[in-house]
Design a protein around this nucleic acid. Sequence first.
DNA 1: TGTTGAGGAAATGTGATAAC
DNA 2: GTTATCACATTTCCTCAACA
Length: 364
Amino acid sequence: MAGSNNHKNTEAGSIKSAFGAANRARLINAYFAQQSEENITPDQAWAHVYRLLLWVDQTTGLGHCYESDKSQPGKRWYARSLAFHDWLSTALGVAPDELAKQIDWLFLQAAEDLAANVIRQAANVTAKAETQRKPYQGRGFPRPGEDPELVTIVRETLGRYLGSEPPPEVWDKLVQRVRQYLALENKRKNLVGEGFEDVLAQVLQRTCRRDDMEVFTRRALHELQGFNRMRAGDKPNKVDVSVIRPSMRTLVTAKWSVRADREKQFVTDFTDYVNAESDRKPFEYIFVTNEFDPARLMRACEQLVGNALMFKHVVHISTDAIKATYGLSGEGKDEAASMQRVLKHIDEGRLISLEQWLAGLKSE
DNA sequence: TGTTGAGGAAATGTGATAAC
DNA sequence: GTTATCACATTTCCTCAACA
């Protein structure tokens, strides 16, 4: 935990970067503080990750397990999203229409902090903007936030229900609120990236509880025990999550989901790790993900370097969720085959659940 | 010593096109 | 007609140098 740059972020009510590392750490701590001790175990790890990070797709209302555009009604992943939603709400013990409120905790909290920050600074900002606009006063410059098209849409839709014409400031305010509402969803990306690493690190530490185990996030490779500095001038290679024990060094790449161009990065990162290794002892490379696409999972499980498998394990937040989501479907021929292969990897212990990985670390 | 702004890095999402 | 790939969009936070 030490080493994070807290600045003035710790005072409650004055959060500078709502989505930044310091506030994320604060929120994750707050989340676990309200959990009962007996709930913080490997078998509940998936639930903590999903409660903290998983969200509901705004367009379908269902738990997000695949890209939104492919999960629309009528498309192949809509059926699977329904199955996933069913599994998840059952597993968490909530009604399907209540799920949205039970998950996405980290984002909802951070968004609240962000909104509070905007309000706190609003007066300041408008005052500043006034002085900036002063030299152009009276020349009919566009007002900030002005959006005639959006106003037209609202006006035409409401039509005769609109009692009287609202003043321009009210239109501006409406436009601003709509903008903010739509923009909010885009900010999630920032949380799913580094936030996933933070949550994993906390889950690791809190469920394993070993004195001889250290967990780091985004630490430079050469600062980890037994890895050399790279050539001077090269930019340092940061490891998403690392688990250091006397018996083994585990380097983790954590990606909530995978995209083809990012798959290549796994191999180049691994090559860097191998080249930097200086203790002459083996280390593990592990991939933790919440990806549901069968082809992508299959490739990760089967990726070779030289003639050996690259990842010691591929870890999924919940292999039960995968099984439930795939169900009996599989429309394309290739896709059905990929699914079968992923299920086989689960049976054979190549693709394991977060619970299995944590239990292994704990009892080892 | 503290603040500010520019540029960089990193993340996922999306649309177009190529390949099968 | 589907899948893979590419290129780019969008957003935020971080770092570092310049400045008051």
